[in-house]
Design a protein around this nucleic acid. Structure first.
Lengths: 334, 334
DNA sequence: ATCGCTTTTGCAAGCGTGTGCAAATGCTGC
DNA sequence: GCAGCATTTGCACACGCTTGCAAAAGCGAT
């Protein structure tokens, strides 16, 4: 154990022959310090290997620079892409991300937010799980900002970033019909997330408006295996669908693989498939999945720019982003 | 702006009618406090919504509870899977993960480690990039622990977790030969990571030992597109390979897709393919990729258990983990 | 009640930083 | 040289917590 401990501003001050305030001001942007002493301090700091202690700074300023990312299923393509974009943006804004994994228990979003409070995070971004109202209230009351991505609820205070899920669903429904399909199906998971349900309801409603019924199947989590399972259910029916909209790309990939390899169907000749998210795999030539692109970069930018803005707290802020349809080869025509 | 600020131990103490020390001890495990006062404190804390300030605690204890994860290409299947496992394990051990994205610049690993130092992280886990020696020295000197995953270098002090890459490469070489292949190829990226190069050299050496040459191609980053590009190079040769070992699964997926859809080749009949990592997509039925499974859970467990152990600092610690061969359908026979 | 012992409790001194305030310093124009 | 002003500097307090130390309290036995 070297146990040398970290070098403090005090030591730098002594080495540079100035007061401790001077070194503090040198590392505080916008503080008044002469160029001469500034240089002396910087030299001494460099020689000693000094780094401002952000714990202490956060304690004083009552602003830690930490932003909590609360997320489950980190290994999933869409989630990890969003994570990438968010950390990138946060670092651009001088913030640092604290990552909290809520895969395990159900109340884990609450535990996570508690952790965020303990470290006095300036803000939390929630990508999964619906935290308890009492906790979010606590966050907000303590001046912590909150961003909810794709999980709109009726709370007051947090920024909510959503997509035009229902509208997108309607667009794909007409695309299916235009491609000559008439036996529509929707493949969903049992997760029941607001955005997933919005896609389902939007799709069913749009179909109904065109005088068509929709076969809806839901299964398990929002993953590849569930897509296969739903295919099992849909493709063993008396009347097979000729177009299926999957709530996520992972479901779509699973569905396509099952349709092709297990039921020997051709996509898109015998069945058209569409997904949602535009994960990387959707563009792989084995799939060529027509899908809606989640605007991850835009989402991250919106979230972070709101977090760091001086003048947030604007009462009931909601951002609704647009999901572009990326046309590939899993739907006829185009 | 409510600006109510956080509630402090002082306020809890007053409400509970005890001293500030008492409430501090209540939240410090292993401190001496009578059950009666403890209860009074807990009640008061709950009523006021008190949470220990980990910034201040870290300042006092000289131990923040923060572990930095330094990682690039977060959106990648293997990386995100490892990230998931690591955060899980860290939380199990009462630590919290600070995520640092090093996608952009080259010296960004250094910047990241600086950030880790500023927040007085107890440890850093490096999944990407080779930090400068001066920085790692600084980390170690300040009692910060360091874990390097799959990027062995000769530094003294950090824990290094590696795989038996070369051995795995040799195993797959013999598997290819046993499947009747004789025109071997290796598909790599230009990243030149130690583990990637170990796979390449191991494969070439094993082939040479069996009297076979290997066509080696390298291209771009370690992703799907590179796999396609390498396929372009390998499959337009006068003599096509009949077996190719790809340094990662993403490369393998890209290679397979190009081989099948662009060159109309059949896998595994005309060409056998193997990968490395065992990402989720490898098991998708469009690929059925035979590959080596990275022991992500084991890796995470090793890393974290070493970090939290009392007695680390054991001079030159290296862990070499085994990668199991997962046999699927991209190689004949089996 | 007194003693000896263990447990609990409060005091106060830090941890490393930011910042208001007043003193000190530098600069400009006579 | 000096007055007038802007800028820089140091002091000292505060932030919220932990913890060594000594005083206080509990407790059982004499």
């Amino acid at each position: 154990m070297s146990q040398k401990l970290f070098v403090s501003a005090q030591e730098v001050a002594e080495k540079a022959g100035v007061s401790r305030s001077a070194v503090s001001r040198t590392f505080t942007s916008g503080a008044s310090v002469s160029p001469k002493t500034r240089q002396k301090v910087l030299d001494a700091a460099d020689a000693l290997g000094y780094h401002v202690n952000h714990l202490a700074r956060g304690l004083m300023r009552n602003e830690s620079g930490i932003v909590c990312l609360i997320v489950s299923e980190i290994g999933t393509p869409y989630r990890s892409a969003l994570l990438r974009a968010l950390t990138q943006q946060l670092q651009n804004s001088g913030k640092v991300a604290m990552l909290i994994n809520t895969d395990r228990s159900d109340g884990s979003a609450d535990l996570a937010l508690r952790q965020a409070i303990r470290y006095r995070a300036d803000a939390s971004i929630i990508l999964s799980g619906l935290p308890d109202k009492s906790i979010t209230d606590l966050c907000l009351k303590n001046g912590q900002r909150l961003v909810l991505i794709n999980r709109d609820d009726d709370r007051e205070g947090p920024l909510k970033i959503n997509l035009d899920d229902a509208d997108a669903a309607a667009r794909i429904a007409t695309a299916f019909v235009r491609a000559g399909c008439s036996k529509l199906a929707f493949a969903n998971s049992q997760a029941g997330t607001p955005s997933l349900m919005a896609r389902e309801h939007g799709f069913v409603a749009a179909a109904k408006a065109m005088g068509l019924d929709v076969m809806v199947e839901r299964f398990g989590h929002t993953g590849y295996e569930s897509g296969r399972a739903v295919a099992q259910q849909l493709l063993t029916r008396k009347e097979r669908p000729d177009a299926v909209f999957c709530a996520t790309d992972l479901l779509a990939c699973g569905f396509m693989d099952a349709a092709r390899h297990q039921f020997s169907m051709s996509v898109p000749d015998q069945i058209c498939v569409a997904g949602f998210d535009d994960i990387e795999q959707a563009s792989w030539s084995s799939y060529g999945l027509t899908t809606f692109a989640q605007p991850v970069d835009m989402t991250a930018r919106e979230a972070v720019s709101w977090l760091v803005s001086e003048t947030a707290e604007s009462e009931n802020h909601t951002v609704r982003l647009h999901a572009d349809l990326v046309w590939r080869t899993s739907i006829r025509g185009g």
